[in-house]
Amino acid sequence: MDLYTISFYMFAVLLLGSAIVVVFSRNIVRAAFALMITLLSIAAFYVLMMADFVGIVQLLLYVGGILVLILFGVMLTNRQISVDIREGAIQTIPAVIVTSTIGGILAGAIWSTAWPMREAARSVAATAPVIGEMFLTTYLLPFEVASVLLLVALVGAALIARRERKS
């Protein structure tokens, strides 16, 4: 077993374990921190696949941005922290049917797809310049549309947050 494989399994265990904690934790803050480990492991997977830029952006945006935001939200609304967030099981049978159907479909899709297997790249040229160039040439329109969309979302969020309370 070489280093690559060891890392892969290590992060796989970390990913699954922390994801399970996110779902089953009784404590919302612990769930949020477990989510951080999940996101970190995903970043590690990107890096293992030699997609270093995506991996780092994953770290930067999800851990540095979104997760910190979630933590802020959770901590500042501190009434919920001590509350057991797990509800009792309701509508168990429909839930089982829906999840098993979707799970079956997914499993079938994964099973039936012919995954192209190839030797993992062991070293890679700088990806950032290529990605940057593609953003500003081939994918200029989607890139700009996405940024406008985000800007709109930002302005909207600010507007909603600052709206005066109707007394």
Partner: peptide, 14 residues
């Protein structure tokens, strides 16, 4: 790392 500085900025979020 090719993205060394970006990496440092990213991990500091931990």
């Amino acid at each position: 790392l090719n993205l060394g500085i970006l990496y440092i900025v990213a991990v500091s979020s931990i």
